[in-house]
Amino acid sequence: MPTALITGASGGIGKCFAQKLAAQNTNLIIVARSEDKLKALAQQLQEQYKIQVDVIVKDLTQTSAAQEIFETTQAKGLTVDLLINNAGFGDYGEFAKTDGDRQIEMIQLNNVALVALTHKFLPQMREKGSGSIINVSSIAAYQPIPYLSVYAATKAFVRSFSEALWAENRQYGVKVLVVSPGPTETNFFNEANFPPSLARNAQSMSTPEEVVDEAMKALENGNAAVVVGGIASKFITGLSSVVPRETLLNLLEKQFKA
């Protein structure tokens, strides 16, 4: 029975990945900071699907987290067949006025932890000639976004990093996919301190189930990347290739200014 490790599994897209994979008879290693939520999810999925669910309570903004997660899986004799780097957050506001420590934590979680976990588990996948990695990015990856400057930059990093790994690892039987959802029905806007007026103006939102279904379909097809969110998301991600850079930035600054 395959095993998937999912970060940010206590809610939203990560929780939905756990539920979908459990229904497909996949054992799970679920990671997040919220012990109560993880244990409740683990109990539910174990009882419903008769799978094994290991809980790792870890704050991925801590620099030692990825190493500790890897050591825990090794100590338990767990082999990770599917790594889903889903944990991440955003923070709205003018960069000069934001909490600097929070910006660094965002980079640590969205990028450093993702790279570190990938670097721990990818060699094992290459060695056995199979395995998959899903990295969750965002349509914010396709252009700089004023007032979400660090968040958009972290997601652009995830997109570029993941697509490069897709090309490097196909020959070893390892699939790598970057998923870029548009606005999704999660707690993102609240956690990012988005002004209510801007949150209300967000394009029609995808459900976490739609994001996960599209991601799993794209992974099965061996795609390098998938954008989720219908025509609106496809349109947004295509703008940067046809609109002059400064024109696009001026438009985005007006759109995202509270």
Score class of each variant (00 low, 15 high):
Ala65Met: 10
Ala65Pro: 03
Ala66Ile: 07
Gln67Val: 12
Gln67Gly: 04
Glu68Ile: 06
Glu68Val: 03
Ile69Arg: 05
Ile69Val: 14
Ile69Ala: 04
Ile69Lys: 05
Phe70Pro: 02
Phe70Asp: 11
Glu71Trp: 02
Glu71Arg: 08
Glu71Gln: 14
Thr72Asp: 09
Gln74Phe: 03
Ala75Ser: 15
Ala75Asp: 12
Lys76Ile: 05
Gly77Asn: 10
Gly77Ile: 10
Gly77Asp: 14
Thr79Trp: 00
Thr79Ser: 08
Thr79Gln: 09
Val80Asp: 00
Val80Phe: 03
Asp81Gly: 04
Asp81Ile: 00
Leu82Lys: 12
Asn85Ile: 07
Asn86Glu: 14
Asn86Val: 03
Asn86Gln: 02
Ala87Asn: 09
Ala87Trp: 11
Ala87Asp: 04
Gly88His: 12
Gly88Glu: 07
Gly88Asp: 09
Gly88Met: 06
Phe89Arg: 00
Phe89Cys: 00
Gly90Gln: 13
Asp91Tyr: 15
Asp91Ser: 13
Asp91Phe: 15
Asp91Val: 13
Asp91Ile: 09
Tyr92Met: 04
Tyr92Glu: 06
Gly93Lys: 10
Gly93Leu: 05
Gly93Cys: 06
Glu94Pro: 00
Glu94Arg: 13
Lys97Ile: 00
Lys97His: 07
Lys97Trp: 03
Thr98Gly: 07
Thr98Arg: 07
Thr98Met: 09
Asp99Met: 03
Asp99Arg: 08
Arg102Val: 02
Gln103Lys: 01
Ile104Lys: 06
Glu105Trp: 04
Glu105Ile: 00
Met106His: 05
Met106Trp: 01
Met106Asp: 10
Met106Leu: 09
Gln108Arg: 15
Gln108Gly: 10
Gln108Leu: 10
Leu109Arg: 02
Leu109Gly: 09
Leu109His: 10
Asn111Gln: 13
Asn111Leu: 05
Asn111Met: 13
Val112Gln: 12
Val112Arg: 14
Ala113Tyr: 12
Ala113Glu: 11
Ala113Ile: 13
Val115Ile: 15
Leu117Thr: 02
His119Gly: 04
Pro123Ile: 09
Pro123Ala: 04
Gln124Tyr: 08
Met125Leu: 07
Glu127Pro: 01
Lys128Met: 01
Lys128Tyr: 02
Lys128Thr: 08
Gly129Ala: 11
Gly129Glu: 01
Gly129Ile: 02
Gly129Pro: 06
Ser130Asp: 01
Ser130Pro: 02
Ser130Ile: 05
Gly131Leu: 12
Gly131Tyr: 12
Ser132Leu: 00
Ile133Gly: 06
Val136Lys: 05
Val136Trp: 06
Ser137Val: 11
Ser138His: 05
Ile139Asp: 03
Ala140Val: 10
Ala141Gly: 10
Tyr142Thr: 10
Gln143Cys: 10
Gln143Phe: 12
Pro144Gly: 11
Pro144Arg: 00
Ile145Trp: 11
Pro146His: 14
Pro146Val: 07
Tyr147Ser: 04
Tyr147Glu: 02
Tyr147Met: 10
Tyr147Ile: 01
Leu148Cys: 07
Leu148Tyr: 14
Leu148Met: 14
Ser149Gly: 15
Ser149Glu: 11
Tyr151Glu: 12
Tyr151His: 12
Ala152Met: 07
Ala153Pro: 08
Thr154Ile: 13
Lys155Pro: 07
Phe157Asn: 08
Phe157Ser: 11
Phe157Glu: 00
Phe157Pro: 09
Phe157Arg: 14
Phe157Gln: 10
Val158His: 04
Val158Asp: 12
Val158Thr: 13
Arg159Trp: 08
Arg159Cys: 07
Ser160Val: 03
Ser160Tyr: 08
Ser160Lys: 08
Ser160Arg: 13
Phe161Trp: 11
Phe161His: 02
Phe161Asp: 01
Phe161Cys: 01
